[in-house]
Design a binder for these strands. Structure first.
Lengths: 340, 340
DNA sequence: GCGTCTTTAGAAATCGATTACTTGCAGCTG
DNA sequence: CAGCTGCAAGTAATCGATTTCTAAAGACGC
C-alpha cells in the first residue's frame, strides 16, 4: 500500500561501520544503558550525527516490547469537554516522557473499535478511553494486557476509571431552577445508550420527584447541536410546554439557544436555561449561560496518573474508581426575571 | 519503562501449531494475499479465533516497512478551526483504510518536534502538519522519505500544501467594515512568527491604505482568548481608539468580546466587530458575530487527498499547492447601527 | 506413461533494532 | 607468576510478523 521510493535510510549498521565499532556499541551509546568508553562514544555520536541517523522506532518497539506512546480515544474532538480532557492527559503524560496519540471515535462504535485495534496492535503503553457505551469492547485490550483507564462513562469490565458525579450535578441544577422560581423545568438529555445522558436525566428526575406536583418533562437527542434544536422544539411544541430547560451538553445547548431564539422566547424571562459543560462561549451569549461545570482537565490529568501507575506496575491489582464533582455556575440564563 | 507482567499473548506460531500448518500459511490466510486451500484456510481462521489471535502490528510494520497510519499534527486542539480540519482528514483517510493519529502541538515548538520525531520513528505512512512557524523542521521527515502535507501555514521547504487566502479574506473584511460606515477600523492579529497572522494583518493594511486618510491601527497577541482581551484593551486605551475591530481568530474574538463588554461598549453601535473562523458560537452571541469563514473541513479533506496521492506514488514530483478561499459572512456585529 | 508446468505449503531469510552471552584484556591477589 | 575478577566491546540470538525460495504434488499434453 504505502510505498516509498529509493530513499536510503541510515541504519544502525551504517553508523557502526562509519564509527568503526559494532552495532551493539552504537546501541549502547545512543541509549546510554551500560558504560561505553567516552572516546568511542563520542566517535559514535559524531558518526550518527554525520549520517543523520534516526533509529527505527518500530524495530525498537518490537525488541523492547514496549513503547512510550499512549492512546487517548475520545468520543468527539469538537466537544470542548473532551479537548480539555486531552490537555490534562497530555500534560501529565509529557511530564513522564510519554507522547499522546489522540483518536477521535466520533461517537461511532466502528471507529472506536478500529482505534482500539490500532492501539492494541501498535502495542501502545496504555489506553485512555471514553467508551461509546457499555458495548465498547475493551476485552481484547485486557486480554492483551494493555493498561487501560476509562473516563466519563463506565463499563461493566473491571478497569480503572475516572467519572464525574453527573447525577448530583443535574440534581443540583434542577433544584436551582426550581429555587429560582421556574415552575416547569424540563431536561434535554443524550441518547439512551450514553451513561452520562442517563445519569443526568435521573438527577433531573430525582429533583422533580422530590419536589412533587411537577410534571416530568424530558426528551433525548444526539449530543450535537441538532439534538438540542430538535429536543427544544419537541418540548416547546407540547400543549403544556416547560418554562426552563436543563441541557445535558454544551453543543446541544447551542442548538437549544437557536430554537429558543427562533421562537422569540427571551432567555431568563420566558424561559430559564442551564447546561452541562463550561464551554468557552457560555459567558458570552446573551444572557450569560448558567452551567454545570465538569472538571475536564482534572479528569484527564487523573486518568493519566492512574494509567502511569498501572504502566509502572505500582497500582493495586483491583481497579480504582475516581469520582470528581461538578460545580454549579449560576449566571443570568437561569435566574428568573419578571417579564417587563 | 513500560513493563507488562505474564500475559501470555498468542503469536502466529501458536496459531500455526493449533491449526497444524506452518506460520507462512497462517500469514497468507489472514492477509489473503496468495491462494490457500479453502479447507486449510478455514482451519486456520478457526484456530485464530479460538485462541483469540491478534497479529502484532509492530512486527508487521517492521517487515512490511509500511503502516496504515497517518499523523495529523495540529497547533491547537481546542481551536474549532483545527478540529474541523481533523474531521476532513479523518473522513478521507478512513475511506482509504488509514487511521489518523492526532497530535496536539499546542503552538509549542518543543511538542511539535517531539511529535514529528514520533511520526518519523513510528514510520507512519504520511504526515499532515500545521507548522508552528517557518522554523518547523520538516527536514528529517523529508530525508526519511515520509510523505508530508502542510496546512494553514507555509514553509520554505518544497512540500505539498493547502492554504487559505487569508490576506484576501482580511482585505474583504476590512473593506466591508469601511463600507458599513466604520471610520477607524483596527486589526488584532496573532504573533509575528505566525504566517496567518502576518497575512491577515497585510490584508487589513492593504485595505486601509487603499482607502487613504485612515490610521493604521493594529496590535499582536497570542492566538488565545487572552490575546484578544489584552489586544482590545491596548487599542481601546489609545488616545484615538478604533471604532471597529478585525480579529484574526475566533478564540481571540471571545477575549475581545469580554473586554468590549467590560467597557460597556455596544457591539454594532459603539464598535464594529468581525473575526476570522466560523466557530459554533458566533451566531449565538449578541449581536451575532460577522465572520470570515475558512473552509476548514475542505482544508483537511484536500490535504488528506494530496497525501494519499503522495503515498500511492501517483503524485507529480514537484509539490502541489492548493489555495482555498474564505467566505465573508456578515451578521449584525459589523453592521453599523445609529446609536439610539 | 512420462516430462513439464502450475499450484500450494513449508522452510528459512528478512525487517532493524536491543540485549544476552562470549571473549579478550588489564589489574589484583595468594 | 598462575589464576581470578571486572569490564568493555563484539557476536549472535531475539522480538513476531511477512515474503522469498524451495520442494512436493497434481494437472495436462503428447
Amino acid at each position: 500500500m504505502a510505498w516509498r521510493v529509493g530513499c536510503r535510510v541510515v541504519k544502525i549498521g551504517d553508523v557502526a561501520r562509519e564509527a568503526g565499532v559494532s552495532v551493539a556499541t552504537v546501541s549502547r551509546t545512543l541509549n546510554g544503558q551500560s558504560s561505553v568508553d567516552p572516546q568511542l562514544a563520542s566517535r559514535v555520536r559524531e558518526a550518527a550525527a554525520r549520517l543523520g541517523y534516526r533509529p527505527n522506532g518500530v524495530a525498537r518497539n518490537l525488541r523492547r516490547k514496549a513503547t512510550d506512546l499512549l492512546a487517548l480515544i475520545i468520543a468527539d474532538v469538537a466537544n470542548p469537554f473532551f479537548t480539555a480532557i486531552t490537555r490534562g492527559v497530555e500534560d501529565v503524560a509529557r511530564s513522564r516522557g510519554f507522547s499522546v496519540l489522540l483518536c477521535n471515535s466520533d461517537e461511532d462504535p466502528g471507529k472506536e473499535s478500529t482505534y482500539l485495534r490500532v492501539a492494541e496492535q501498535q502495542r501502545v503503553a496504555g489506553v485512555i478511553l471514553s467508551p461509546h457505551r457499555d458495548g465498547s469492547d475493551i476485552g481484547d485490550l485486557r486480554r492483551a494486557g494493555v493498561p487501560t483507564v476509562i473516563v466519563d462513562r463506565p463499563l461493566t469490565e473491571p478497569v480503572d476509571s475516572v467519572m464525574v458525579r453527573s447525577r448530583e450535578g443535574a440534581r443540583a441544577a434542577t433544584d436551582h431552577l426550581i429555587d429560582a422560581g421556574w415552575r416547569r423545568p424540563a431536561c434535554i438529555t443524550g441518547p439512551e445508550d450514553a451513561w452520562t445522558a442517563q445519569e443526568r436525566l435521573e438527577g433531573y428526575l430525582s429533583a422533580v420527584r422530590e419536589h412533587g406536583e411537577m410534571d416530568e418533562l424530558w426528551v433525548r437527542g444526539p449530543f450535537r447541536q441538532q439534538g438540542g434544536t430538535s429536543g427544544a422544539a419537541r418540548l416547546l411544541d407540547a400543549p403544556k410546554p416547560p418554562d426552563a430547560l436543563l441541557v445535558a451538553n454544551a453543543q446541544m445547548a447551542l442548538g437549544v439557544l437557536e430554537e429558543v431564539r427562533r421562537r422569540g422566547l427571551r432567555v431568563g424571562i420566558d424561559i430559564g436555561l442551564i447546561t452541562f459543560d463550561e464551554a468557552p462561549w457560555t459567558s458570552f451569549v446573551e444572557p450569560p449561560m448558567s452551567v454545570v461545570a465538569q472538571p475536564a482537565y482534572d479528569i484527564g490529568a487523573q486518568a493519566a496518573q492512574l494509567l502511569m501507575d498501572r504502566i509502572a506496575g505500582s497500582a493495586p491489582a483491583e481497579p480504582r474508581h475516581l469520582q470528581l464533582s461538578t460545580m454549579l455556575v449560576v449566571r443570568a440564563s437561569s435566574r428568573r426575571q419578571a417579564p417587563r
